[in-house]
Simulated assay, not measured.
Amino acid sequence: MNQAPIFQLKRNAFGRLIFNDQSGISQEGVVPVRSFPITHPDQGIALVDSHGHELVWIERLTDLPDDYRQLIEAELASREFMPEIKRLCKVSNFITPSTWHVETDRGETSFILKGEEDIRRLANSSLMITDSHGIHFLVRDRLSLDRQSRKLLDHFL
């Protein structure tokens, strides 16, 4: 069973999060920040003020009452956009810049990879690919991709 949190959280008329601590101090425009957005997205979340100062640390989202958890999840979803690549369909060439045609968890898309340095290795076999517009694409497990996708990706790793 969830414990009562030591703070209050609600939205104002403009949709911004308002945080009230135990002493009654109110902060408008708080932002949830994940510590480990890829490996542990529901653990280690800080609520920070507009200056980036931590107001409260949330060990696990499941520890919160449902209404607070839903507010935080909705705020995170509106701020984070990271499609997950499920399949590489085609790559224009094996030198950069190159155009990649991929299937993601949000549908098919294409993007331009400026250089191999825009592919970062994360924990285990995860990758973060940044396109020419700064959009991050996640490959959660490159070893679980289909054979053709792995073959195309290997040219850049």
Rank of each mutant, 00 (worst) to 15 (best):
Y68F: 07
E116T: 10
R142V: 11
E117M: 03
A77V: 09
D49P: 07
K151A: 14
F94H: 04
P5V: 06
L122N: 03
T109W: 13
R87N: 04
H51E: 06
I95H: 11
I45F: 11
I38P: 00
K151Q: 15
D146E: 12
N93R: 01
L113Y: 06
M82D: 11
N12P: 01
S110Y: 12
D63V: 01
D63Q: 04
T62K: 03
S35E: 02
N20R: 10
D118M: 08
I129S: 08
F36R: 00
E108Q: 14
I38S: 02
T130W: 14
A46Y: 12
E54R: 01
L88C: 07
S144G: 09
H53F: 03
S149F: 11
L17M: 11
A77W: 14
K10S: 14
Y68P: 02
T130S: 14
G29K: 00
H136V: 09
L145T: 11
A123T: 05
H40Q: 14
S92Y: 06
D42H: 12
A4T: 14
S50M: 00
G134L: 14
D66M: 06
L64V: 01
A123E: 06
H53E: 04
T130C: 12
H40F: 14
A123K: 04
A4L: 13
I129Q: 08
I112M: 06
R60A: 01
H101M: 09
I38Q: 01
L138W: 15
F14Y: 13
D66F: 07
Q27P: 00
F19E: 03
L71N: 06
L157R: 11
R142I: 10
T62N: 00
D118C: 08
